[in-house]
Design a binder for these strands. Structure first.
Length: 395
DNA sequence: TCTGGGGTCCTAGGACCC
DNA sequence: TCTGGGGTCCTAGGACCC
């Protein structure tokens, strides 16, 4: 029995190349779009990496390079990426080789292979990998080992060593040898904080880490860190969270130009709230809590800074757009201070529960039902004719 | 100077991930 | 001029109770 991990290569960029004829082999970057071409690089093709571009840099810092090298710039299209990801998911499930196949994020998957022979595992994984490439145009790296963390480490080898040809099967007897080659900072679950603490002890590789006494790891790191430590030793300690039902839903935006007017900010917050509520209904949930936050531009030392957030609770869980949007706008008004230039704001829904588990209020059942139908109708119209065809005004 | 000892629930913020 | 947008879990500390 082996765990399988599949990771798409430069996912957003690969999706753009796969869906735009004539872009293969050219430098291409995907950047988040904020109206005036602001934004930062989110993903890039190998050709774009080769000319020195990196993930996370703001476009304005590399304007000249982008123009000189004729780099194709694509705005991020998350709907497209989700669609391709679902396609990959359903193709692999239909093929039936991988068991318990789950989507971990938009570009990563985990599953189980009920096999033990490394050569046989490799053959099966090659079939899955080919299937993904031929049906979606996306190339992937595949790693396979005893635990999720080790499988993900194997994927790192599959991607970093050409000889693996995109597939690395890591059997128990090769585990220590592999971990010795795996830099500590590449280990899944080791972030900046843990890296700093472990480096101070002279830990350089994943193997150094697993050779520490468990007592020391417990004292130094959190339980999550301990789980990583155990998984690297081949002991299963993580559970993958299913992503089909979110425990919080957020919509936020960094504005291209700073906003000073309360009305304009209210409109934005109402739109965020409305989109959150739609997402909430799509997963058949209700929320108990809505949070609104707003920030000025943290990069501008020359401007006065202000940031705040506020929370409202509903008497009973709801997915009603006007109720959520009215609450959100109320929170905004309670925090809004004139005289600041606002750069970012957002709405978060939390305290999410299943809509079927919620008791109906006997006295208001009829009104609730009418309200629910109204929401259902607007969702259908918007899904058929495009987002925000129908919205709620006059909040 | 002395000023219990637990338990639970909630929340804010940290750490990590893609 | 221009600096992303989502998520998850854990922990510490306060409020409150007995």
């Amino acid at each position: 029995m082996y765990r399988l991990h599949i990771d798409c290569n430069s996912y957003f960029a690969s999706c753009e190349v796969a869906t735009r004829p004539g872009t293969a082999g050219k430098p291409l970057v995907v950047a988040n779009d904020n109206e005036q071409g602001g934004g930062v690089i989110l993903a890039l093709t190998p050709e774009a990496k080769a000319i020195g571009l990196k993930r996370g840099i703001p476009l304005f810092k590399v304007r000249d390079l982008l123009r000189r090298e004729n780099v194709i710039i694509c705005p991020a299209d998350h709907k497209k990426y989700r669609r391709i990801s679902h396609k990959i998911m359903s193709e692999v499930v239909a093929q039936g080789i991988v068991q318990d196949f789950v989507q971990y994020s938009v570009d990563e998957f985990f599953g189980t292979l009920p096999l033990d022979d490394p050569a046989e595992l490799r053959r099966y994984i090659a079939k899955v990998r080919n299937l993904i490439t031929t049906t979606s145009g996306i190339t992937v790296g595949c790693g396979c080992s005893q635990t999720n963390t080790l499988a993900k480490s194997a994927t790192w080898f599959a991607k970093h060593y050409k000889a693996f040809d995109g597939i690395c099967v890591l059997p128990p007897e090769k585990r220590e040898q592999a971990l010795a080659q795996l830099p500590l900072q590449e280990v899944w679950g080791v972030g900046r904080q843990a890296f700093r603490k472990l480096s101070a002890l002279g830990v350089v590789s994943a193997l150094d880490f697993v050779h520490l006494p468990q007592r020391q790891v417990e004292q130094l790191l959190t339980t999550a860190g301990l789980h990583t430590y155990l998984e690297l030793q081949g002991i299963e300690a993580t559970q993958l969270e299913s992503h089909d039902r979110r425990k919080s839903i957020m919509q936020s935006h960094t504005f291209a130009t700073m906003i000073t007017s309360r009305d304009e900010l209210s409109d934005e917050v109402a739109r965020f709230a409305s989109r959150c509520a739609e997402q909430l209904r799509r997963q058949n949930s209700l929320c108990r809590t809505v949070t609104v936050f707003l920030n000025t531009n943290r990069y501008r030392d020359d401007l006065p800074q202000y940031r705040n957030d506020a929370v409202a609770k509903f008497d009973k869980p709801t997915a009603d757009t006007p109720a959520i949007a009215t609450a959100a706008v109320g929170l905004l008004n309670s925090m809004f201070r004139p005289g600041y230039q606002y750069k970012r704001a957002g709405v978060v829904l939390s305290g999410i529960v299943d809509d079927k588990s919620c008791q109906l209020d006997l006295f208001n059942a009829e009104a609730d039902e009418r309200r629910r139908r109204l929401m259902a109708v607007t969702d259908i119209i918007n899904s058929r004719f495009g987002d925000e065809t129908v919205t709620f005004g006059n909040l």
